[in-house]
Design a protein around this nucleic acid. Sequence first.
DNA 1: TACTAACCGAGACGGTACGTCAAGTCTTGCT
DNA 2: AGCAAGACTTGACGTACCGTCTCGGTTAGTA
Lengths: 188, 188, 188, 188
Amino acid sequence: MAERADAARNRRAILRVTEELLHTEGPDQLTLDRVAAAAGVGKGTVFRRFGSRTGLFQELLADRAARIRAGVEAGPAPLGPGAPPDERLFGFLDELAHLAARNVALIAAHEQACAADKHLDPTYRRWHAHLVDLVGRLRPTADADFVAHTLLGAFDAELVRHVLADGGLTRLRRAVRDLAESLVTAPR
Amino acid sequence: MAERADAARNRRAILRVTEELLHTEGPDQLTLDRVAAAAGVGKGTVFRRFGSRTGLFQELLADRAARIRAGVEAGPAPLGPGAPPDERLFGFLDELAHLAARNVALIAAHEQACAADKHLDPTYRRWHAHLVDLVGRLRPTADADFVAHTLLGAFDAELVRHVLADGGLTRLRRAVRDLAESLVTAPR
Amino acid sequence: MAERADAARNRRAILRVTEELLHTEGPDQLTLDRVAAAAGVGKGTVFRRFGSRTGLFQELLADRAARIRAGVEAGPAPLGPGAPPDERLFGFLDELAHLAARNVALIAAHEQACAADKHLDPTYRRWHAHLVDLVGRLRPTADADFVAHTLLGAFDAELVRHVLADGGLTRLRRAVRDLAESLVTAPR
Amino acid sequence: MAERADAARNRRAILRVTEELLHTEGPDQLTLDRVAAAAGVGKGTVFRRFGSRTGLFQELLADRAARIRAGVEAGPAPLGPGAPPDERLFGFLDELAHLAARNVALIAAHEQACAADKHLDPTYRRWHAHLVDLVGRLRPTADADFVAHTLLGAFDAELVRHVLADGGLTRLRRAVRDLAESLVTAPR
DNA sequence: TACTAACCGAGACGGTACGTCAAGTCTTGCT
DNA sequence: AGCAAGACTTGACGTACCGTCTCGGTTAGTA
């Protein structure tokens, strides 16, 4: 059965409120009780929808990443399937940099909540798979799996916050691009 | 006044038990109550000694990292100050790989506990400073600060566990060395 | 419009299943979800028919009490209107004893569900009114209202279960009759 | 170990607040969250102390019943061990009437919470045992166990509220005494 | 060896946030 | 068009675990 209208409304309210609270007060102050209260729903509703604190953040991240996902799967260059791999790699990482910069609090919350299951998050897996594909093409001798994880490690919340605080988005983008270029254009 | 005999005994017991529980049951099952109980001390004792869950893991990690620290500060090549930077870099990361492989559970616990304060951990800071120094020498144009953090990101518990499970220590060492070489030998 | 055939079938199924579950698993395990599932209907159906958990038990009790009601209103001695009051009192209480013994679980559920509204239940009110009438005739000086409630208190589920467990139906019947005789034949 | 000073303070605060809320808002509005908040403690504290909603009411009732208990165990006539049984019976029930009248809300909450375990409550058991003793002496042929339960049934919250609303404490006391006299002075 | 004062150990205590559960409501699809 | 199904909402309960606090016991220094 399709999602009921009221459920959809609540779902959107919860996601919106969660993001608001994340930005205004940070991940530590965000409790599910407060989310529920601010969204005007009962706590049980939050849990029914998202299963757990973790699930809430995963879904919120998936939501925020939807545009990138669409671009990667069927968009124009530099993200989409038509562009050459190196352009796609740089473009993809650049998008992630923007995303991370705009959602530091969400990423922090997501990391903390997912804890030991980071690699199981659907969004993370999708990003990783995409990077494995690109890196594999650009540098077949590398351990693409490992490199992909390490590249994604560059968007760790702590690191992003630190870089943004001293250098801003520009520094983050440049640093990420530099890193990627090094990996891809290295000899061998 | 010197540490009392019983206090020292308890302190060692707590560290030993913590590591045991980390290996046998994983970081999630490890509560400070259980540590205290298994060590045969009261919970207050644990907190008196280590301040918090975080502090316990930090101290345990510092303990495990002591040998590397000594080697870096005053040991022979390839770790020590006498060796050339690239050799030191590869040697240092190789040591970290060994350390990480042997202490995955501890690292996982440490990450989870430090949460948003990873960069404040003394051991992490020392490692980071060392890498900044080496990277700065080897590739002056790079954002050494950022690169150092990213390199340390390669020892994320999840990633280490994943790599060890499929490829073992050999793969981890090779992948890390490859990564470092790429960064250092890249053009420009 | 008369009750539709399927509605009647569902209604009977719900009542039957409720009683079954009450006997096999006790009042605490009985949730309306389980009733609905076991009866093969949706939960909404249960609520449409019976209004609430309370209503379900009230109706079930009314059903079980129907025979007694008929006897009291138009049956032969000792229950019916033709018999002398004392005989009617003893006979009525004896019938209640049988009913209670046969439906302990239902009574327990009923008490718990009605909570603070016990006196509003139609069946309870009918029983109480009947007792007030009889007691008022047999002992005009007594506080018939109060006495009637107290007499009905003798069929409290906990008490009935306790007495049945140690003495069986025989003890319950004798104890109730004794109680009633004391009240009715006391001096003054 | 003796109760810690802070624990005792909190314990008293919780009991006091519980009673206040019971009187001002009734049992249905009383949630343990509100109790905790109003007492200025965490919810965990309430549960640590009292185990559950039920336990809270049981302890509060025991507290309120302490004076009667002392009187019964070692006080002067008519309650204490020195007085003749009938005087003790009437005196005891009269005390219960006062207690019930003053604590209707508590009794209602207690009944609802204890649900199917009323007979396990320590205070109830004590009262019951006392009545069994007295009734057994005054009317050896009676089923003292059953009669004692029935007498206590006269202090059912619903009934007490109903009687108080129409007749006040005077009616309650008289009705209870009448009931007891009937039972005790009945022939045989 | 006896005494005292500081200190340590044990775990009871306090608080917060998560997650569960079952009654009751409401939308949607089917008859 | 109206009923049946069950997804949905609610919020109180209870739990878990971190970190604090109290109090009894222990140690070390002194006589």
